[in-house]
Design a protein around this nucleic acid. Structure first.
Length: 483
RNA sequence: GGCGCGGUAGCCAAGUGGUAAGGCCGAGGUCUGCAAAACCUCUAUGCGUCGGUUCGAUUCCGACCCGCGCCUCCA
């Protein structure tokens, strides 16, 4: 079964295939702006893309997928943050890049094969080159202040992706948008390719395209330039959150196709927004969560990943603390299933997560056993259906001592779990404070001494402090109390 | 106003022209110093409302109601 994915341009499911003769599937995923910690809405998109990338590797081979995700390290927000903190721009973006990488690792997202930065001299040059070509071709013009704008009217296909021509701009927003640089632009819908230096930009300025003032690249051009530099003029897939559909991706198409004269991306995919408590996350509503916020509430990063997989990626997903509890419990059950299969198949935990075996190309009748849930993933990334298949299988599972069946089931689960990127054995964060740990030790000692009254007293204290102590055979586990 | 998505059990959420996956929660049970965990069993005559098409609709069509998102900062 081929991988089929919704295409935002044609609005239908289309098979994903590599176009290049080398068989390498090239895909570009718009990355974060590094000026603050990413929130879980951002991570929904990155997790969706991570599953997609894993699925592609399973389908085409680990060495046949090239996944690029950029880092926007210069824009109004990064510059403002640096100015407010009185630090060099590079320091600020480096700090938040590191944080982003740490969060991605915690969420078990594979690093992309390339992660270009907008201010990297190599790519800055690429951006300037593209702008110069666009100016030469009459698709861009220099504004009075030395900025360069893309002339939207010069590209007939403008608006095909977002159907912007069918939209009627709300008077209010159109006016607001036009206000900022109305004097510079020839037309309200034109967008900046190069922004001339202003005093607010401080020391952050670079040599611009010929004829333009020193300044910095506009936001949209970085993706066009870096995609071209790393993946080539035509790529197989370009992805991002729905909010990037317009204007960002529309503008990328315009720039790239006017500059290169060929199709920019063969396929477009957009994942929907994550809602929190039924609303889009925003600082003003106070419903914006970062990974650290949720960790502080005692949830594991893996539960967050699972919760992000609970809805279809092209539908808005309502995220709540309750759904995190549900995720944490569900992971526990899958872990128990994995442990059971590891035992039955006489394998180890390391075998279960061995991606080399999972992605091995040579056919193997056992490990090629059709993994449950995989078809659902290949059918437009239907996460809930895939998870459902896993649990349905879990119920039907009757190993009955048959090791062949156990091995097939083991490989099946390992494959699907790999694609979903769930590290089942990395769950509850037991970062209990020292006082809690000491109390738990005290109770454990009392229990071993059969001082049950003392043990119960300590349990009461732990409960009061919000911690559950789960006794095992040879030790205990501390978990934050559920609700 | 324009464009788009959605309304399925207490919550989250798949899905199909032929009579509703799965997870959480809850209830009961097995087990167990206690408490959990784990495991087993149960939980929508119903899929926003009203019409239409059909032998049959939650699934197709129409109208309406409600929610959410986007409309040039935004994953």
């Amino acid at each position: 079964m081929p991988i089929r994915l919704h295409d935002s341009l044609t609005r239908e499911l289309r098979e994903l295939t590599p176009a290049h003769p080398d068989g390498i599937f090239r895909f570009y995923n718009c990355g974060p702006t590094v000026y603050a910690p990413a929130h879980i809405g951002n991570f929904r998109t990155f997790v969706v893309n991570d599953v997609l990338r894993r699925l592609l590797e399973l389908e085409f081979g680990a060495d046949k997928v090239k996944h690029v995700r950029n880092l926007t390290d210069v824009d109004d927000k990064t510059i403002r943050r640096a100015r407010e903190e009185g630090r060099p721009l590079g320091d600020v973006t480096r700090q938040w890049t590191e944080k982003f990488h740490a969060d991605c690792a915690a969420l078990n997202c594979l690093p992309p094969h390339a992660e270009p930065r907008a201010t990297d001299p190599q790519f800055l040059k690429e951006q300037v080159n593209m702008i110069e070509v666009l100016m030469e071709r009459g698709n861009a013009y220099r504004a009075p202040d030395g900025s360069v704008y893309f002339k939207v009217s010069s590209f007939d296909n403008y608006g095909r992706l977002s159907r912007v021509k069918e939209r009627e701009l709300q008077p209010g927003s159109a006016l607001k948008a036009a206000a900022a640089d109305a004097d510079e632009k020839e037309d309200g819908s034109d967008f900046a390719l190069w922004k001339a230096w202003k005093s607010d930009d401080g020391s952050n300025k670079w040599t611009g395209p010929r004829g333009a003032a020193p300044g910095r690249p506009g936001w949209h051009i970085e993706c066009s330039a870096m995609s071209k530099a790393i993946l080539g003029e035509t790529i197989d897939l370009h992805t991002g959150g729905v909010d990037l559909l317009f204007p960002h991706h529309e503008n990328e198409i315009a720039q790239s196709e006017c500059c290169n004269g060929v199709q920019f991306s063969r396929h477009w995919y957009h994942s929907e927004h994550l809602l929190v408590d039924g609303k889009k996350m925003s600082k003003s509503l106070g419903n914006l969560y970062t990974l650290d916020d949720l960790k502080a509430k005692g949830f594991s990063a893996m539960a967050v990943r699972y919760a992000l997989l609970m809805g279809h990626p092209r539908k808005q997903l309502n995220f709540t603390l309750d759904s995190l509890h549900a995720a944490e419990s569900a992971i526990g059950k899958l872990k128990a299933l994995a442990d059971k299969l590891i035992l039955a198949a006489q394998k180890t935990e390391a075998d279960f997560y061995d991606s080399t075996t999972i992605l091995r190309r040579n056919p193997d009748p056992i490990s090629d056993f059709s993994p449950l849930g995989l078809d659902a993933l290949k059918d437009d990334l239907n996460f809930p259906a895939a998870l459902g298949a896993l649990f349905t299988d879990r119920k039907a599972l009757d190993l009955g001592g048959k090791s062949v069946l156990a091995k097939a089931e083991f490989h099946s689960l390992a494959k699907t779990v790999f694609v979903l990127g769930l590290d089942l054995h990395r769950t509850i964060a037991t970062n209990a404070p020292p006082a809690i740990t000491a109390l738990a030790e005290k109770r454990w000692a009392a229990k071993l001494a059969k001082d049950y009254a003392g043990a119960d007293a300590s349990r009461k204290e732990l409960t009061a402090a919000g911690w559950a102590m789960l006794d095992g055979k040879d030790g205990y586990k501390l978990e934050p109390l559920k609700k």
